[in-house]
Each structure stands twice: as structure tokens, then as C-alpha cells.
Write a protein that binds this DNA or RNA. Structure first.
Length: 715
DNA sequence: AAGATCTATCTTTTT
DNA sequence: GATAGATCTT
């Protein structure tokens, strides 16, 4: 039976492999101790990766559990998992535990294989994001009265200057106490039993040196994006018998500003004596696009095409972004009328804010569009708060989360930071004592805590981990948990946002319960894992629907376009000073060029690039990007967009309207908000030592005496 | 404590 | 090339 199955599979593979070219097949079959594949754009890199994993598993009998497959984003990890399961539905989630981002794999190792206790953590540790780390740092700075400059940029500084701190360099750039802060911060994180993103890697690396966990294979996707820590992680994870297979494209390095190692391929070859293979053939784009793209290659050999030069690249000159947006509307309508799906059309730009005008004009012209901006949990205040509640509930050592949950302006208890701190620190010293007391006289405790408002949520959080019925295989209903935390009250049932908030939380809880059920773990443990994942996976974990399916034109930055492909690509704002964005260094400049390269190689069939004679932006020149002149003339059709009088006056009006709306939007962002227990949230009109004036939707402007303390000013 | 001067950063974004 | 923040100057 098994033999038969095996043979069938072998037949399948032969079929499968017919679709691979010889370069791809070489890469799939290669079993050198270390191998790096220099994969050109659109050369079937992910296909090779998947085939390789299947080949190793089914043909070479390497258990999937012994493979570590590393990606840089959750999206990429998800794609690999999806394609793998599609080909081989028998693969289970447990088998691919170590398939994921560097950070999620590190988390998994720390939870399952590495002795974190040796470094002063427990297995219950939680994960914090950079913002929380910065907040924690600020606390320490205040407490220890450290002199740290540029506090507003602390998040960035913490990350950037950590390297030189580790290398024992002098803190020469800024003369302040930042380097005194690092050890204190480390100590505090240990005390609160939590790790930052980089801690996950760093601590894994140091523990891997003591306790080796050598997988049979390490497979890395997009290896050109590795930063120093990730390279170290690879090194620490790789045993002498471990084989390394890494795929990437040095021409697509567009994130070096966040610490990408510059010459990854060279380093890999040096360090692991890796063999180098290449995937030169591009199946995606037509020959004109590829010939243009070849002019922008910085590394490796020419991209070989597999297609004809069907049409030229169009370069269009527009008066300004408004005229361009109108033109795009028209063109997209035509294309759609001609049978092209909206979702096969994409508009790329250099800066996020360039989407504003497009959005306004597209909605006016009723063109469905989708702007790709990453939503994070932080954008949803209720969820952000509730996750803090859960974080403290799962990890009572996390004092910081406890305080933040209790003092949250919107959903927390009406209690001051000082009081919350006292409450928690008091509990810290005699946790067991208190928990015993509460077990013995729960009714009484409940009463007093409701009287002294600040107690309700606090007790619920501390007692969460002690609930016996949640330490069993029975997973509670989402409504039960909702009720346990008294959320119907905490979410302010009288406010207009209540219904939405309730739905959000119940949705989240449902995902959490589902997770516990599929993972077959106890509710408490499941919650801890899930909450950790939420730090690492962000919205991916509980997005309602993957937004991929809807038929709409995609609007995105060039950065966001990486890894995607479309039939028809518009690349807008190709002006000097915009696309290359005015940048100082030469290295930066090279990266702008790679960004342009990534942009144009997303197009399968049609590529249109445009620029403005009146860009109307600071620092943007009216001449076109010099990259455009680098494209061989015979591949290009230069066009002027004509505009008659009628149209011009319409545009004037449009311009005014849109600019007005944008100004309002910008003002709204700067507006301070305030919350009142009865009227809900409103816009802060004025404030002095005595009074606050707030405008509430539906109630109008109200004035309050500050001394009453009913109004919380939100930050 | 105000005013002058220096300086970094802006943009891109993942975990 | 502007601007915000920190630092220096009086």
C-alpha cells in the first residue's frame, strides 16, 4: 500500500518536474551542505522552494519536523504553508511548526526546546512590541532620573544604538545615559518575564550556543533581506550536519534602511562555503519590460526572458497629480470595459501620501480601489486595550501591562497610575497570600472591589490564571470570557461605539477559542500563545477576510509591491526628487534604483510610467526621473497628455475640493479628544487650568469644571 | 528664560 | 531644503 502510494507520488513528481526548467530542477535536487540560489525576479523562486520541501520530505524521507523554513514576513510564511497544503493535503499544522518568520521560529524554539530558565525567564514569558519596550524604557528613565536625549525618537534609538552598545563602543554620538539604560531595561524585561522582538532572536542565539538544536535542513526565503541578527541566528541554528538552502535576489534589496546586511550572498558563500546556483529565466513579464529591467540590474547576470516584446512601455507627461488621477480613472475604465479585472491593475507610488489624491478622484469616478496599508492592533483601541488585559492576566509579572490596562483612558478603571502601581507592586510581593484570601472570601472581596472602583478589573486579571475550570480541555464560550472581565460595563454600553467594540472583542475571543480547540491546549496556555502571536503576527491572525479576493484596483507604495505581480502596472510620480527621492548618500541612491526596478518588474503585460510638469511638492523637480532616460528609446513611447480648456477648469475645482478635504483630514488628526462618562468621546475645543470645553457628537459643546474630574483628556 | 545655533530627520515598514 | 528638538548663549 505504502509502496504504491510512493510510486504514485513519484509519477506525480515526474509530471511536476516537467514544468521546471533545468536551473530550477538543479536547485530542487541540490544537496550541497550549503547552497545559495541567486534568483532573478519572476524566476519561480517560491515554486522551487515548495518543490524542494516536497522532494526532501517524500523522496529523501526528511521529516518535515526536522526542517526549519524561514521567511521575513508572515504573509510569505502563509503563502508557503498554503501552497504546500494545496499540493499535499495530508500535511498537518504540527509538522510545519518550524515553518515561519525568523521571529516566530525563534519564539517556538524558546517555548519548546531552549532552556530559557537559564537566563532568568520562565516558559510563560510574553512578547512585547517595540513601542511597549520604549514605554518601559521611559518608565525606567523617569524612575532612575536618567538623562536621555531625543526621547521622542527613543524607539528608533533603542534599536539603532543597541549594536554599538553590545560592541562596547563609546556612546559618542549623543552624550547621554542611553548606555546606562540598556542593562536596566534588560533587567526589567527579565523581571517582568517578557522579550522584545530582537530579544527573541538574541536569546535564541545565545541559548543555541549552549543547547544545540540542529535541524536537518534550514531553508530560507528572500535571504537578501537578512539583518545581522538573522544571519547570526542562521549560524547558531546550523549544525555541522545541517544543510542550508537559501534563495534570494540581491537586486531586490529595498529595506536596507532597517538594517539589511549589505552583501548577504557573499557572506553566505564565505561563511558556509555555500555553492551558488542561479535562476535566470523570468516567466512573468514581456520582453520590453525585461529589457528595460536589465538596465537596472546591479548584481548578477542578465535576466533571460521567456516571452515576446508585445507592447512598448508608455511614459506619460501630466500637468499635475490631479490631471493624472483623472487620466488614470479614464484609462482604468477603458481597461475594465475591455475585459480586464480591476484586481489585475495596480498603481504604484513612492510615498504613502500620494494615494490621497487618487483615492478622492477614484471614489468620485466610482472606480473600486484598495489601498494597501497595514492595519495593526494599535489602530483598534478596544482590541489594543483588551490584549493588554489578557497579557497581564497570563503573565502577572508584566506590571507594565497591568498598569496600562488599568489606567487606559477609555476602557480602564478610573484609577491613577500611582494607585495602579501601588496595587500591583503590593500584589507582587505577596501574590500567593492574596490569592488565598480571595479564594476564601470571594463574595466580600467582590463587594469591596466594586466600591473602590479600581479593584474590579484588577482582581479579574489576577484571578484569571487561577481559574481551575480554564486549566482543562474544556474551552469556555467567548461570551463567558466577555462576562468574566465585565466587558459589558467596561466598554461603556451607552456610547455609540459600544456595538462595534463588542463585536470586535467577541470576534477576537472566538478566534482565540478556535485556536485553543485546534491546538488542543488548555484555555490559559492557549491564551498565552495567542496573545504572544498577536504581538508577532499583528492583524494577520484575526483579519476578518483576507483582502485578496475583492475586485478592486490596487494602490500601493513601491515597497509594498514587492513580491506581487499584475497584468497592468501604472508607476506614477516618476519625477526627479520623488523617484529617486531626494536622498543624500550614494548607497541610498542605489536603493532608490532597486526600488524602481522592483516596481517595473511587477508588470506582466503593460507598464505605464508617468511624471508631472507641476508636481507641487516640496523638493520635487518638474523634470522626469533620470531612470526614465536609462530605458532604451526603442522600448518606449513618450506621450503628452492633452488637456482642453473645459477639463482644465474642472480640474481647478477638483483640486480645490480635494485640497480642502485633505486639510480637514490633517486637522482632524491633530485634534485632541476627550472622554466623558455620559457623553462618550468628543473633540476637545479648549482647555485651561479650571475648565475644559468638549464637543460631543449629538450633544453639542459642553463645558466642564476640571475639579469634577469627569472628563479624561485622551492623548 | 528667551533667542541663536546646531543637528538629525523627513520617506519606505517587518517582526 | 524645511522643521522640530536639543543645546548653547546671553
Amino acid at each position: 500500500m505504502k509502496e504504491e502510494l510512493q510510486e504514485n507520488l513519484q509519477e506525480d513528481w515526474k509530471q511536476e518536474w516537467k514544468q521546471l526548467n533545468s536551473y530550477q530542477l538543479d536547485a530542487v535536487l541540490d544537496e550541497s551542505p550549503a547552497c545559495v540560489v541567486n534568483a532573478n525576479v519572476g524566476s519561480g523562486k517560491t515554486t522551487v522552494l515548495i518543490e524542494k520541501i516536497l522532494y526532501l520530505h517524500f523522496q529523501k524521507r526528511v521529516p518535515l519536523e526536522e526542517m526549519v523554513v524561514l521567511t521575513f514576513t508572515n504573509k510569505a510564511a502563509g503563502e508557503i504553508a498554503e501552497r504546500l497544503v494545496k499540493k499535499e493535503p495530508s500535511i498537518t499544522r504540527e509538522q510545519v511548526q518550524y515553518f515561519g518568520t525568523f521571529h516566530s521560529v525563534a519564539l517556538c524554539l524558546l517555548k519548546e526546546k531552549l532552556p530559557v530558565e537559564e537566563l532568568g525567564f520562565t516558559k510563560d514569558f510574553t512578547v512585547i512590541d517595540p513601542e511597549e519596550e520604549a514605554d518601559l524604557a521611559l518608565e525606567i528613565i523617569a524612575e532612575r532620573k536618567l538623562n536621555v536625549k531625543y526621547k521622542n525618537r527613543l524607539k528608533k534609538r533603542l534599536e539603532q544604538e543597541y549594536r554599538s552598545y553590545l560592541q562596547g563602543k563609546e556612546n559618542s554620538r549623543q552624550k547621554d545615559d542611553l548606555f546606562l539604560l540598556y542593562p536596566l531595561l534588560e533587567e526589567e524585561k527579565k523581571k517582568q518575564n517578557k522579550m522584545s522582538f530582537s530579544d527573541l532572536l538574541r536569546i535564541s542565539i545565545s541559548l543555541l550556543k549552549r543547547e544545540s538544536v540542529y535541524p536537518s535542513w534550514i531553508i530560507v526565503d528572500e535571504v537578501q533581506d537578512s539583518d545581522g541578527l538573522q544571519m547570526e541566528f542562521l549560524e547558531a541554528l546550523k549544525g555541522n550536519e545541517t544543510k542550508l538552502f537559501a534563495v534570494g535576489d540581491p537586486n531586490q534589496v529595498i529595506y536596507s534602511w532597517r538594517g539589511t546586511v549589505q552583501n548577504t550572498f557573499y557572506l553566505l558563500k564565505q561563511q558556509f562555503e555555500a555553492k551558488e546556483l542561479s535562476l535566470p529565466i523570468n516567466y512573468r513579464s514581456n520582453a520590453s519590460i525585461l529589457e528595460a529591467a536589465n538596465r537596472f540590474l546591479q548584481f548578477g547576470n542578465k535576466i533571460q526572458g521567456a516571452r515576446e516584446a508585445e507592447s512598448k512601455i508608455i511614459i506619460k507627461k501630466h500637468y499635475d497629480p490631479f490631471q493624472e488621477a483623472e487620466y488614470l480613472s479614464e484609462r482604468i475604465c477603458e481597461l475594465h470595459a475591455g475585459g480586464l479585472a480591476y484586481s489585475e491593475i495596480a498603481v504604484f507610488y513612492r510615498l504613502q501620501k500620494q494615494s490621497d489624491i487618487l483615492e478622492k478622484v477614484f471614489s468620485k469616478n466610482e472606480i473600486p480601489y484598495q489601498v494597501s496599508i497595514r492595519k495593526t492592533i494599535k489602530d483598534i483601541p478596544v482590541l489594543n486595550w483588551f490584549i493588554k488585559v489578557l497579557r497581564f492576566s497570563c503573565n502577572p509579572a508584566d506590571v507594565q501591562m497591568g498598569i496600562e490596562a488599568l489606567t487606559d483612558a477609555n476602557y480602564g478603571e478610573k484609577c491613577t497610575k500611582k494607585k495602579a502601581k501601588e496595587l500591583l507592586e503590593n500584589a507582587q510581593t505577596k501574590t500567593k497570600d492574596i490569592s488565598k484570601k480571595t479564594e476564601n472570601m470571594p463574595e466580600q472581596k467582590k463587594e469591596t472591589s466594586q466600591k473602590s472602583k479600581a479593584g474590579g478589573l484588577y482582581w479579574k486579571m489576577t484571578k484569571f490564571a487561577q481559574k481551575e475550570e480554564w486549566r482543562s480541555a474544556d474551552i469556555p464560550l467567548e461570551e463567558e470570557i466577555f462576562a468574566y472581565f465585565g466587558l459589558n460595563e467596561a466598554l461603556h454600553p451607552t456610547t455609540s461605539s459600544y456595538a462595534e467594540d463588542e463585536r470586535t472583542i467577541l470576534e477576537f475571543l472566538r478566534k482565540l477559542c478556535d485556536y485553543c480547540k485546534t491546538e488542543k491546549c488548555f484555555f490559559i496556555e492557549g491564551t498565552r500563545d495567542f496573545v504572544n502571536s498577536s504581538a508577532l503576527y499583528g492583524m494577520n491572525l484575526f483579519e476578518k477576510e483576507p483582502d485578496g479576493e475583492c475586485d478592486a484596483v490596487r494602490l500601493m507604495t513601491l515597497h509594498a509591491s514587492k513580491g506581487l505581480e499584475f497584468d497592468h502596472v501604472f508607476l506614477i510620480g516618476a519625477n526627479q526628487g520623488m523617484l529617486p527621492l531626494h536622498s543624500q548618500g550614494f548607497e541610498m541612491e542605489e536603493e532608490e534604483c532597486r526600488l524602481f526596478f522592483v516596481g517595473i518588474t511587477r508588470a506582466r503585460n503593460k507598464l505605464e510610467i508617468s511624471y508631472y510638469t507641476n508636481p507641487g511638492e516640496r523638493g520635487v523637480l518638474s523634470e522626469c526621473s533620470r531612470y526614465l532616460r536609462r530605458i532604451p528609446a526603442h522600448l518606449v513611447e513618450w506621450e503628452d497628455h492633452p488637456s482642453d480648456e473645459q477639463r482644465r477648469s474642472n480640474l481647478q475645482q477638483l483640486r480645490r475640493e480635494v485640497q480642502e478635504q485633505l486639510r480637514e483630514k490633517a486637522e482632524e488628526k491633530d485634534v485632541k479628544r476627550a472622554r466623558h462618562p455620559k457623553y462618550g468621546e468628543g473633540i476637545l475645543i479648549s482647555e485651561d487650568e479650571m475648565m475644559v470645553e468638549v464637543e460631543f457628537e449629538g450633544y453639542g459643546r459642553k463645558q466642564f469644571l476640571k475639579a469634577f474630574g469627569e472628563v479624561d483628556i485622551c492623548k
